[in-house]
Design a binder for these strands. Structure first.
Lengths: 336, 336
DNA sequence: TTGAAAGCGCTAACAC
DNA sequence: GTGTTAGCGCTTTCAA
């Protein structure tokens, strides 16, 4: 593997000159530059970014920390869409993406900060970790530039990107009440997700404005999974046979809920209307197709990368970016 | 950021000793080691893997080169499942994964080899590139250890992981002929995919064994997309109104084909049976659910990572791993 | 069991 | 415009 030293020797110049010529500095004689570029080509030279990183103290990589990057979660293409968004932006820059995952026991021993410092990433985008994750605090308070996806925390070096979950859930609630529903329940994710808290807040508010209470017994957690949603729906149906609508904090849970309803011999949307959240791919394909709150997931990733790289390259302070959302009415819901 | 130099100074030893102690060499006095480990902790030391990489000439990273890692392709969760498989294996080792993508014009200027050399990845897993990709040859013939997913090429430093596409398509064909179908067509991907060639071969063979010809006009390309599949099906229907079965080289195209059939007022499977390939997530959810050839996609990634890392760590020669497949009969196909 | 010294490939003062 | 030199943080001979 050719190095600048080899080029220097062959071209009869110093390594400094080679470095300068190859990096496009202006103070190099045009003839010298030509010669250097030429010999670089002849020697099939590739710069060694590791060596450069070492001296520049910048690796030009950003870590992508995804919790639960595992098979089961592939169902939910939320994660992959965020990733493509990140990649869309990053590929326009000179940053590369390093994948970190936290499901392995090996990495559990290390804090995220350690992980990032060892791999020398310049910054990190964090996705899918729970609010009770012991290392979240450390990252938010830490020195490593970081952008959180869907976790509204700001620190000295930490910003976030999310959608307005309160507004989204509010619209879902408004939609249902305006459609004449009164016996309404909600399937939420779990208590350690910010989005769960926010969606509950927005939804409750919308109902309350119409004078409809959402008592604790009308809320069940479905852990964001299809099975969890199914079981949660079953419990809700058990408790209240007059239900006419269920709002689910994720499409996957909504699909589970639809299964539950069908298994009870009831129909969606004739007997019970269902609204999901996320607009995952599947939501268009299930029968009936799912009414849901769409998020621009790709933009979530894109904006996260944009913010992080702005922090890195232009010392921009971390902030928060809110990506738009939208109610998409399909066939799983109807007027009473 | 503390370095071994800092530790050496504080502990009153040389940097050599620190390096040895921290790397678990045996020839270090137990007391010295303890002291060093302790001061390392006090100084909140993290090793700098970049510096290590430079001197070791090993980056302990593997590149994941995915072509078309873009939004549209997220539909097909094939890619993401392969990725989780790769990650499953890699996370058990000390290798990290660096994401490369080739959709950006920037990177198009560089060959894969250049990309890999610059980023100093120890090896690379390549997924989703076409057989007419100008740089494929260079990688297969090159010096960088590499494992191809679904491209059966072996080189001095290149192996591959795939399923037996010929056998899979053969089973699909066998299934259809045994179900009594005679007027059969096929929707293939495109001419620059190995899997397309192989699936055509296997399928043709199965039909031929029952004395059924598959003339060129009964084969249309659908470019592996839902829309492409829909259009291909329309063309086939146009040409042969007696069709009773269509085999599609991907589930996505099969879903497109079902749309086409429905739009023509025909029913699946009553009028026309459909078989797909891949067993993507969607195939279970569409109506009717799709009969398909399942591949263990996760294993594809897992085995790719396993092979590559064996090549890297144990100098194992590259080989080929065949991952199992399986016909899954659902509701899009029936006996004549 | 420990340390001094060289060097991985590169960049960046600084001097000429 | 160009070269000399030092040094990024680490590993690894070699010698003590």
């Amino acid at each position: 593997m050719a190095t600048i030293k080899d080029i220097a020797k062959k071209a009869g110049v110093s390594i400094t000159t080679v470095s300068r010529a190859l990096n496009g500095y202006s103070d190099v004689n045009e003839d010298t530059r030509k010669k250097i570029v030429e010999t670089a080509k002849i020697l099939n030279y590739s710069p060694n970014s590791i060596a450069r990183s070492l001296v520049m103290k910048k690796s030009k990589t950003i870590g992508l920390l995804v919790s639960g990057f595992i098979r089961e979660n592939a169902k939910d293409n939320f994660m992959i869409e965020v990733m493509t968004g990140i990649n869309d932006f990053a590929s326009q820059t000179d940053y590369d993406i390093v994948l970190f995952t936290t499901n392995s026991s090996k990495q559990r021993e290390k804090t995220y900060t350690q992980l990032c410092r060892e791999r020398q990433v310049d910054g990190v985008i964090i996705q899918g970790i729970r609010t009770d994750d012991p290392y979240l605090e450390e990252v938010v308070e830490g020195e490593i530039p970081c952008v959180l996806v869907d976790i509204p925390r700001i620190g000295k070096h930490a910003g976030y990107v999310s959608t307005d979950n309160i507004a989204g859930a509010y619209e879902a609630g408004k939609y249902l009440t305006e459609a004449g529903h009164k016996e309404i329940a909600m399937i939420n994710g779990h208590d350690y997700a910010f989005v769960s808290k926010e969606r509950l807040e927005g939804f409750t508010r919308a109902l309350l404005e119409e004078g409809i209470e959402l008592p604790a017994q009308s809320i069940e957690n479905g852990e964001f999974s299809e099975e969890g949603g199914e079981e949660a729906a079953l419990r809700l149906l058990e408790k209240n046979s007059d239900l006419t609508a269920i709002f689910c904090s994720s499409d996957l849970m909504a699909i589970g809920a639809m299964n539950a309803i069908k298994s009870k011999g009831l129909r969606v949307p004739e007997d019970i209307s269902i609204i999901g959240y996320d607009n995952i791919l599947l939501s268009r394909y299930v029968q009936p197709s799912l009414t849901t709150i769409a998020q621009d997931t790709n933009a979530l990733g894109y904006e996260a990368a944009k913010m992080l790289i702005a922090m890195l390259d232009q010392q921009k302070p971390p902030g928060n970016t809110i990506v738009k959302h939208e109610l998409i009415v399909r066939n799983s819901s109807k007027k009473r």
